[in-house]
Deep mutational scan, measured.
Amino acid sequence: MAAGGDHGSPDSYRSPLASRYASPEMCFVFSDRYKFRTWRQLWLWLAEAEQTLGLPITDEQIQEMKSNLENIDFKMAAEEEKRLRHDVMAHVHTFGHCCPKAAGIIHLGATSCYVGDNTDLIILRNALDLLLPKLARVISRLADFAKERASLPTLGFTHFQPAQLTTVGKRCCLWIQDLCMDLQNLKRVRDDLRFRGVKGTTGTQASFLQLFEGDDHKVEQLDKMVTEKAGFKRAFIITGQTYTRKVDIEVLSVLASLGASVHKICTDIRLLANLKEMEEPFEKQQIGSSAMPYKRNPMRSERCCSLARHLMTLVMDPLQTASVQWFERTLDDSANRRICLAEAFLTADTILNTLQNISEGLVVYPKVIERRIRQELPFMATENIIMAMVKAGGSRQDCHEKIRVLSQQAASVVKQEGGDNDLIERIQVDAYFSPIHSQLDHLLDPSSFTGRASQQVQRFLEEEVYPLLKPYESVMKVKAELCL
């Protein structure tokens, strides 16, 4: 049975990233139509530049190519590739079939990587351009969430054990800070992308030097003109047959890092959902379990974690691919890159769409948070109580021993009897502590235990987050809708 299948058929496997999760716009960027249309555009740009620099290419040939950029006979191309065992030459023939007058000058002087690699770089750039505003929107939604809850005390956790208090907004800023680093890295790697350009079979530009009869300047002009037509500021000066596969490492490393950030955020949300302090959106008709109707599973956060793990592992592909590119190139890269580049971007696209949807509907339960604080705060307040007693004339050592005994009794009630923490009640009825009984409410005010959390939130948002989001103001209103 021949390899390949009808990918629109229910009898043929289709990647869930495309069929179930990723956005239509990201799927289109990695589609065959987008790819092969870009090949034709690159052939047109090459012909236009070659004509401008004096090669015998007519206006009629150029116009014929322009008129057929979208006229792609995919069936013919597939048949040609089956016959020739070469995808680029299959599309040269297919393009030439609908451009008979231009057929002889299509791909003039070029090698397969002229269309293959340059198209990949265009796709990487455009895919990054799709991700950047999506990530900015996630940051914006979380920034709104953090600002609104900047002063809401909550129990902090280290080692997932109760620690000092923080605020809900401050905790959210930990998430935002990681995503801001990801946004900066995505922008950097996007701006650092260079075009492969017009380089020939081993990167020496020998074929173009021959076409222009040894004119170095025209060869350099050709490279520059096509690079500018493709919208790049610069091209690699040095290439082998391909652009260095280190570029793929750079791009997928940034995406993998984004995956790590999203995994951490969504894990926190899942843990908070278990504590009943916070939940992701839950639709009115949504079913959490087929057997347990009360369940409210954090399905979206779980999906993000599941896909983020996949995204983090994909960076190993370009690392290994770059390491086995012998001399000017081997074909070890080809099949692998067809999979890992598309999957990385479709996965990143999915987790950003999902995280935006989550961040637009996060639900906080202040009463649950308050109750958990009441359970733990008495123990945390013991040092403040000791200091207040010393100020009232008591002995630190005597007070410490009193607190120690009462704390152990209260802990026994919590752990052995399943009761509430009654340390404060014990202190309130103990005559030894009568000098500070009137101060206990103040000493137990949760806001006095959150330090500068709310001020940190305000400063972080104003100095770091809002300036970073400013270039994306025009796209901030787009909502994230999930079908599944």
Rank of each mutant, 00 (worst) to 15 (best):
V475F: 09
D11M: 12
A308T: 11
Q320Y: 11
L271R: 01
C304R: 02
S12W: 12
T450Q: 07
Q205P: 00
I249S: 06
T119G: 12
L423H: 06
A348V: 14
T347Y: 06
E81S: 00
R245Y: 00
F236R: 07
R188V: 02
I339V: 13
L275F: 06
S140L: 15
I72M: 11
T154L: 07
M181V: 09
S112C: 03
F208S: 02
T382K: 04
A143Q: 01
P293E: 01
L272S: 08
H310Y: 09
G109F: 03
T350N: 15
G96R: 00
T204S: 14
P133T: 14
E25C: 11
D191E: 14
P378S: 06
C399F: 06
Q221W: 09
I373C: 06
Q51I: 07
E48D: 01
F157K: 07
T202I: 07
S253W: 07
M65L: 12
I358Y: 05
K199W: 03
H91L: 09
I249L: 09
H217I: 12
R338I: 03
H400G: 04
N68Q: 13
Q61I: 07
P318V: 06
V138E: 08
L341F: 15
R404D: 02
P24M: 13
F232R: 01
P293H: 09
K170Y: 02
Q397V: 05
Q177N: 14
P133F: 12
I358M: 14
L135D: 03
V368Y: 04
S474P: 15
D398F: 09
V315I: 12
L186V: 12
D73V: 05
F95L: 07
D32R: 12
P298H: 03
E50I: 01
R141S: 15
F30W: 12
L352T: 04
A410V: 02
H91K: 01
K264I: 02
L423S: 03
Q286Y: 03
L275D: 08
W39K: 00
Q397E: 06
Q61F: 06
H93M: 11
V168A: 05
H310V: 11
D349N: 07
R190S: 11
Q397F: 07
A392Q: 13
E79F: 11
Q177P: 01
Y21T: 00
C305L: 03
L44V: 13
V457D: 02
V262D: 05
N185K: 10
T227N: 07
V478A: 15
A411H: 07
G419C: 13
R396Q: 06
V262R: 02
F212M: 11
I265H: 08
M65I: 14
R37T: 10
P298L: 03
G5N: 15
L69N: 06
L131A: 14
A335C: 12
Q184T: 13
W175C: 01
